[in-house]
């Protein structure tokens, strides 16, 4: 038998068969003809809100060099639809399901967390405290330490599921919000959501995004995310899920070396619906090339000598 490297990683209580999972909002059941979901480390459906919401006015995305800006505004059918349709749709896969939740108030987060705690198939909760579209001028809960701490503390009281706080990169000192989340009771951190950005059409002088500002994602943000992962990893021992600019297996390895235990793939799914499978294969190739038995041994192993 040929030797296969061990790609499994652990995020709090969650055992993932490999470090690759989709980034919330960039993945759904419509991708199933292109990719065997059973091969993924975890599944993260689009963020859910308590009530139905229609999302932002268009254009909701625009392409920019090395990435894209989006302002979808979390179009959502509400929690009832989610528990009746979305969770059962993914339940047939033998992969931990991480539910991403979002809200306009701390109470909404708590109600959602409570509802989902009663569902066995939900393996963990990712708190989208950082979506830059939700509030005026892109202000999100995750941009303030106190609010971050209070939000996570409140949610922690209603659930024993692993709590993953998805941090905002739109802060001066991400270590502060990371520690605030940890003190609030987070089990893991996603680093990070999208970067607040803007683009203007020079011909028409109009903003390229209907909602004026949106979140920047894609390959161009990777160096920023590597830096953020590294900074967060230096101050906390909580597992980190890297998110931002992972297009290849090599990008994932880079995030792992910076301190990530797992990595979310977002924008790459739009370019290639099977991108995550290619990335998993590329990680295995890298490990074989470097004689690494366990990917978990590589976490934070940047050589600073």
């Amino acid at each position: 038998m040929t030797w296969r490297p061990d790609l499994s990683v652990k995020i709090s209580k969650l055992m993932l068969k490999n470090p690759i999972m989709p980034a919330s909002g960039t993945f759904g059941t419509e991708m199933s003809p292109f990719i065997d979901f059973n091969r993924l480390g975890a599944i993260v459906p689009k963020s859910i809100t308590l009530n139905e919401r229609s999302g932002n006015k268009g254009p909701r995305i625009c392409e920019v060099e090395g990435g894209m800006i989006n302002s979808i505004g979390i179009q959502s059918k509400g929690i009832d639809y989610y528990t009746e349709h979305i969770i059962p749709d993914f339940a047939k896969y033998d992969v931990p399901l991480i539910a991403s939740i979002s809200g306009d108030t701390i109470d909404e987060f708590a109600i959602l967390a409570e509802r989902l705690t009663g569902i066995d198939r939900v393996a963990g909760l990712e708190l989208n405290i950082s979506c830059p579209n939700l509030r005026n001028n892109g202000i999100a809960f995750g941009m303030d330490e106190k609010t971050t701490n209070e939000l996570i503390r409140t949610v922690r009281q209603v659930t024993d599921k692993p709590l993953i706080a998805k941090l905002s990169p739109n802060v001066t000192h991400i270590q502060d919000t990371a520690l605030a989340a940890e003190k609030g009771g987070a089990d893991a951190l996603t680093v990070a959501n999208t970067f607040l950005a803007m683009a203007i059409d020079t011909e028409t002088r109009k903003p390229k995004i209907g909602n004026l500002m949106g979140g920047f994602s894609g390959p161009a943000v990777k160096p920023l995310i590597i830096r953020l992962i590294f900074q967060v990893h230096q101050v906390t021992s909580l597992p980190i899920i890297g998110s931002g600019g992972a297009m290849t297996g090599q990008d994932v390895i880079e995030m792992i070396l910076a301190g990530a235990s797992a990595v979310q793939v977002g924008t790459a799914n739009f370019m290639k619906p099977a991108a995550m499978l290619d990335i998993i294969d590329e990680i295995a190739d890298y490990m074989m090339r470097h004689h690494i038995d366990k990917i978990a041994d590589l976490i934070g192993k940047i050589d600073l000598e």
Partner: peptide, 16 residues
């Protein structure tokens, strides 16, 4: 017509 990302129905970029 609308600007699209996934083109498949997963991302809601194209909603009008």
């Amino acid at each position: 017509e609308a600007h699209m990302a996934c083109g498949l129905g997963d991302c809601y970029a194209c909603a009008c």
